[in-house]
């Protein structure tokens, strides 16, 4: 990936804001079925941070992301993106966010180029800018040769790359990666790691959810554990290990989910 991203703030911070990329206060999300997916989440992600959100399936990670991006409506609490309320002032808030969702949710009718072009249009980018940016991103993600193909013809890895390119199309200041490396091969995973590290170094705030703990450890400067709809611990990898009085992030995670018997240390002891 030879892409050199140009970061131009799509949305300036709100006046008088403390410039947190994401500030969530008392967020509750209850689905019509009665399931309470988020139970008063408080979370702050500073501008420029690479933040990891870890938790078991059903812990509330995707719901939190959906509430932030407008795909779910919060029951109560507040969400601010660079000081812009994500519900009351959704236009400014969403303009600052790029979402690479967990699902490969590409429109099968569109070509790769159209996918990026329409996405840029939804965010108000002008035609010339859209064309140039799409060409840049297709090149960066080694998709130029496929630009006129329909998305349904792509392999899983290519779809994953296109989804990341789409999330970056409008030059978001805050990138949300919801399990971006699920099901991709080692080579692509490492490529994506290098890429997101670089754009983070250049100023983009990143929120990453993943089930790969080594990924979070490698990439994130700060990590939060979420379980049963609540943030239960937050800190650096070392701080989290210390909180749970264990050696590694993995062991801290196993403590969180109540499966410490699966710890590599315990398994080694048993086998020896």
């Amino acid at each position: 990936m030879a892409f050199e991203p140009q970061h131009r703030p799509a949305t300036p911070p709100a006046q008088g804001s403390d410039a947190a990329a994401l500030q969530i206060t008392g967020l509750v999300k209850e689905y019509p079925t009665g399931t309470r997916a988020l139970q008063g989440v408080d979370l702050r992600i500073a501008d420029g941070q690479f933040f990891g959100l870890l938790g078991p399936n059903g812990a509330g990670k995707s719901t939190l992301i959906h509430c932030t991006t407008g795909l779910a409506t919060p029951t109560s609490g507040s969400i601010a993106v660079f000081g812009h309320d994500a519900v009351a002032n959704y236009g400014q808030a969403r303009a600052a966010v790029g979402l690479a969702p967990q699902d490969l949710n590409l429109d099968h009718f569109l070509t790769l180029e159209e996918t990026l072009d329409f996405h840029g249009g939804y965010f108000g980018m002008r035609k010339k800018d859209r064309r140039e940016r799409a060409a840049e991103l297709l090149e960066a993600f080694s998709l130029t040769a496929k630009r006129h193909d329909r998305t349904r013809t792509l392999s899983g890895g290519m779809k994953r790359r296109l989804i990341l390119a789409r999330a970056l199309m409008h030059r978001p200041r805050f990138l949300i990666l919801d399990e971006p490396t699920a099901g991709v091969d080692v080579e692509l995973r490492l490529e994506l790691w290098h890429y997101v590290q670089r754009i983070n170094a250049e100023g983009t705030t990143i929120l990453l959810t993943t089930h790969y703990l080594e990924e979070a450890e490698q990439l994130c400067s700060r990590i939060a554990f979420i379980n049963h709809g609540q943030i239960v611990a937050e800190g650096t990898s070392a701080e989290l290990a210390a909180t749970y009085e264990v050696e590694t992030l993995e062991d801290a995670y196993l403590e969180l989910v109540g499966r410490k018997e699966l710890s590599r240390g315990m398994v080694s002891e048993v086998s020896s």
């Binding site: 979402l99 699902d103 429109d107 965010f123 789409r166």
Partner: peptide, 10 residues
Amino acid sequence: RAIDDQLSSP
């Protein structure tokens, strides 16, 4: 779920 691209836009 392609509609999410439109729904999460401004």
